[in-house]
Design a protein around this nucleic acid. Structure first.
Lengths: 198, 198
DNA sequence: TAGCATGGAGAACAATTGGAAAACAGACGA
DNA sequence: TCGTCTGTTTTCCAATTGTTCTCCATGCTA
């Protein structure tokens, strides 16, 4: 959503002065800084910024207000590569990928490069970039990043069994499903979207 | 569509100064910069540029206006769906997807939703979004959007044969390659990247 | 020469934007 | 309990902005 001029001004101001505010500023402080004499006017603009998702009201309902800016601006970190059976190869310096919102979720995300063909029948190929939502739990049938025995990371389809064990299913008929005790498997995230360059 | 001299002037000006405008310029600002004294006159030219598809009005219909259509800024248009054997189903109103540069090229691009499973063995699944670079030619082995007999659009791997004919290869062992005379096949773009939401 | 396309001026118009002011409700400290 | 500080809501108003309209000038061409 596009901002009007004044909305952009105010957003820019908040952005630039984010560090200068010890606490998030009150409306009165902002009015003074921005040359407004009515909190009501400011309120309209702030409301627009909230609608646009660029700013968030403080949890404490009172006194102060604050600006958050999140992955929509910075992008999500590309953490490295995941290959079935090995730990995640972390990049020394994570690279940030600016992605459009519709590929993300409201929760923190990160990106991994897929190595290998264990999910090829789900359309995930060697070299693809996957966007993962950071979560420690997942529902049946979701494709997850799982850490097995604190050692191997892998991208597989999840199946929670009735007896409490967990089965990780490779979408590759050459690779059989593997079943583990619940405590052996730690969910590190859930597959959200996929990018591929040709 | 052809532009008149002044229309071209104005378009050039907008293009060159795109970065200098913090917000999209108002008509008054443009009039001043372009040496006009009547917004009404400018309006006629802008209207012509809009008709020509070179410029777009801002969403908020007022206050500030005029956006360049540059894919880095605006995003690329989602034109509709492509299903093997049918014309492209165009969306009434193309939706614009802001994508990071590394998924695009320097040339004009557009996005299509893939229907069907004809390319499933290339990792392209039903419902995937593909980014296409607008081109009327392609090299051997590239995956292209091809229009056959001015009627059917399809996404296939291209093979130019020695005798001048063209073979379109579905990446699906259930579908045999099809060979056409060169004049039957018109290339409309080349596959650049792929997006998928889960 | 008349006709037409292009380019521009200016006035009038409606919608939106940006702002002021007043009043209100909840939180909090004295 | 009372006053104060906060965000919120509402009403009103002025300026700005895109749009539409009419009128005019110029250059080209049939």
């Amino acid at each position: 959503m596009k901002l009007t001029r004044r909305q952009q001004d105010i957003y820019d101001y908040l952005h630039e002065n984010a560090e200068r505010f010890a606490h998030p500023p009150t409306y009165d402080e902002l009015c003074q800084q921005l040359g407004l004499s009515s909190r009501g006017s400011l309120h309209k603009h702030i409301q627009a910024l909230i609608e646009a998702g660029l700013v968030e009201p403080m949890e404490g309902r009172q006194g102060i207000r604050l600006v958050e800016w999140q992955q929509a601006d910075t992008g999500i970190p590309h953490m490295g590569a995941i290959a079935a059976g090995r730990p995640i190869e972390a990049l020394a310096q994570p690279e940030f990928l600016p992605l459009p919102e519709f590929l993300l979720s409201k929760h923190p995300c990160y990106a991994l490069t897929v190595k290998g063909e264990s999910m090829i029948e789900a359309g995930i190929m060697d070299g693809d970039l996957v966007v993962i939502e950071k979560r420690d739990n997942a529902r049946n049938g979701e494709i997850v990043v799982a850490l097995i025995n604190d050692a191997e990371a892998t991208l597989k389809r999840l199946q929670n069994n009735h007896d409490g064990s967990v089965t990780l299913i490779a979408e590759n008929s050459a690779m059989p499903p593997m079943t583990y005790a619940a405590e052996q498997v730690q969910i590190q995230g859930v597959l959200l979207s996929l990018l591929r360059r040709y």
